[in-house]
């Protein structure tokens, strides 16, 4: 082999061996692809009034960043992400993670009894969720890891709220003309654009296709009716959702979805205007 080269270089490499542990971690701020992403890509901490949601969006996580010191990490975040992180974090939402700054569409609540409140000045918290009643609510998490529809179960446990999120995984196969979900859900409506709001409804299958395919997205618009004058229904040509609501007003509306196994699923929705844009929420009990 290259014995000559070896001999000349042995000394250099022996010296560097002393610094071995730090060699690989000298590059503070490298995007480490080999992070262990936590099972839940976000954390929810509640008190008697509201819940704080912290989302790991894969970009900010100290222990994966190979920085030699916390100070070095804070400097990196400042120069690269333009954010000032305070070393101390205010309770009661004290968490050991770093969450991303709130984006308007990162958490989309599908019901009017779970309000999403943006947070701008607490770095560990992405948004607050304010529950108004117990129940199930579809929530869409628009983040890089773990993106998708979740079923939020809102409960009151003693004096404190509790929200459990269950990822309603969607089948990714493009071999089927249908989209399958792990769990059925009555309705979820995306934020509207120019008065058009894509919506989803998934009904339970009589027999599961697989352990992750127990419900199917309703894709036949003829089975769905909006019983109010200011909501019309049109097909989704891309077949991503069940269809589109076209809204030209606001107020309460009943959506009626004929079920394959008979009967109807009736969902009351609230069409509201936010900053000139329409949103359609599942209505809570009065």
């Amino acid at each position: 082999m290259a014995v000559g080269i070896m001999r000349n270089s042995v000394l250099i490499f022996l010296v560097e061996a002393l610094f071995l542990p730090s060699i690989c971690y000298s590059n503070c701020g490298l995007k480490n692809k080999y992070l262990t992403i936590p099972k839940n890509f976000f954390e929810v901490v509640c008190d008697s009034i509201k819940c704080a949601v912290s989302i790991y969006d894969g970009a900010v996580r100290q222990d994966g960043y190979g920085c030699d010191s916390k100070q070095e990490f804070l400097e990196y975040v400042k120069t690269t992400l333009g954010r000032d992180l305070d070393e101390k974090y205010a309770g009661p939402y004290m968490l050991n993670r770093f969450a991303r700054v709130y984006r308007p569409d990162i958490i989309q609540s599908g019901c009017d009894y779970l309000k999403v409140v943006p947070v701008y000045n607490v770095d560990t918290v992405t948004a607050f969720l304010e529950p108004l009643q117990e129940g199930l609510c579809p929530v869409f998490m628009n983040m890089n890891y773990g993106k998708g529809l979740y079923e939020a179960k809102i409960e009151r446990v003693g004096p404190v709220w509790r929200i459990s999120f269950y990822h309603n995984s969607k089948s990714l196969s493009d071999e089927s003309e249908f989209t399958f979900f792990e769990r059925p859900f009555r309705l979820f409506v995306e934020p509207c654009r120019n008065g058009k709001c894509r919506f989803y409804s998934a009904e339970k299958l009589p027999f599961a296709r697989s352990s992750y395919e127990k419900a199917v997205l309703v894709n036949n618009i003829d089975r769905i009716k909006a019983e109010c004058s200011f909501v019309q229904l049109i097909e989704d040509p891309e077949k991503i959702g069940s269809g589109f609501f076209v809204v030209n007003g606001f107020g309460k509306c009943k959506i009626r979805i004929a079920q394959k196994r008979g009967g109807f699923e009736n969902v009351w929705v609230n069409v509201v205007q936010h900053d000139g844009m329409s949103r359609v929420y599942i209505e809570g009990n009065e």
Partner: peptide
């Protein structure tokens, strides 16, 4: 082994301890 370890680490940031 040392060759490989060094190769696999990034060198975006120079540090006084590292060649």
């Amino acid at each position: 082994v040392l060759c490989i370890l060094l190769m696999s680490c990034g060198n975006e940031k120079n540090s006084s301890e590292i060649k």
